[in-house]
Amino acid sequence: MMPRGRLVTVAKAAACVVFAGHMAATCTQHIPAGSALRPLAAPFVHYDELTGIWQSWNMFTTPPYLHAYDVDLEVLERDGTSGAAGPMLPGIRRYDGSLRAESFFTCVVDDPSCSAYLAGYFDRMCAALHTRLGHGGQRIVLHEVYDRLRLLPDIRANGVIASREEHRSKAFDCGG
C-alpha cells in the first residue's frame, strides 16, 4: 500500500495536469477558426460547456457604429389596417433602451445564428397579440431604427453626428 504522503503527491501531480488542461482549454478556444492549429480546441469543447468557461473577448474590436438604436413592432391586420406596438415581452411594452434588449433585438434581427430565437420570439408575440386583441391572423415585422455614426470629417464639417437608417426583419404570419 502506498504511504499517505506519496498518495498526496500523486494526487497533487494529477491535479497539476488538470490545471494545465484548464489553461489549455482557456487558451485554445481563441485560436482563429481558419488556423491549422484550431483542431487543438476540439478536445476541450465539452469541458468548456460543462464548466461554463466558453468565452470570447471581441469587445470593441471595431469602433461602435451606432449613435442611437430603437426598435418597434409593425402589426398588419388581415383587413389591411396597420399599427405599431412595443416589442418587449411580456406585456407588449415599448423598447426599454437597455444594452441587454439591444443585444437581443440586434441578434435576432441581424444575426442568422439567432434565427431560432427570432422564430420563438414571433410565436410568443403572436400569442400575446391574440390575448390582447382577441384575434390572431396578424402579420408582424420587427422594425429597427438606428442612427449610424458618420465619419469624423463629416461630423466636423456640419456637427451632425449620425444618419438615420431603418431595417426590417422578415415578416411573420401569426396564422389563425
Binding site: 460547456e49 415581452l89 441587454r100 437581443f104 430565437y117 420563438g120 410565436d123 410568443r124
Partner: peptide, 28 residues
Amino acid sequence: PVRDEYFAQGGLVSLAAARATASGGLCG
C-alpha cells in the same frame, strides 16, 4: 427588473430556442 423578459416563459427569449442552441452540448 427584467427577469421575466429573459428567463421566464412568455418573455423575449424562447425556451425551445435556448434548448435547441444548447442541444448536443453539455450546457445546462
